[in-house]
């Protein structure tokens, strides 16, 4: 049982400071979670702390790769709008 960090991460350190297990460390290109240390905060808190403070959608995922903060869940920007932007970015065009 461990969470992990995707490349959506912006390296803001917020999760590092709140992890009760000091499981998160700076890595390249983004922060990483030590799966031996991560408990998903099951014993400690009602919700995993990294996911509770992370400002970036889809940056923290569970073992199945499911984001704890899915697209549209943090900023309130409609999913369709976000997808448009992501697609534009993938094509190398400004959104």
């Amino acid at each position: 049982m461990a969470l992990s960090i995707t490349e959506a991460c912006v390296n803001c350190w917020a999760c590092v400071d709140v992890c009760p297990n000091t499981a998160i460390y700076a890595s390249d290109p983004v922060f990483a979670i030590d799966s031996d240390k991560c408990t998903e905060c099951l014993a400690e808190f009602p919700e995993p702390q990294c996911a509770a403070i992370c400002p970036i959608e889809c940056a923290i995922v569970d073992e199945l790769g499911t984001p704890l903060n899915p697209l549209g869940s943090l900023t309130g920007i409609p999913v369709e709008k976000l997808q448009e932007i992501l697609e534009a970015a993938a094509q190398g065009q400004p959104a």
């Binding site: 390296n11 803001c12 350190w13 917020a14 400071d17 400002p55």
Partner: peptide
């Protein structure tokens, strides 16, 4: 000070 504890609608953390 990179970490933040709130989200503002005028800010984009990326």
């Amino acid at each position: 000070a990179p970490a933040c504890n709130i989200q503002c609608n005028y800010c984009n953390r990326k």
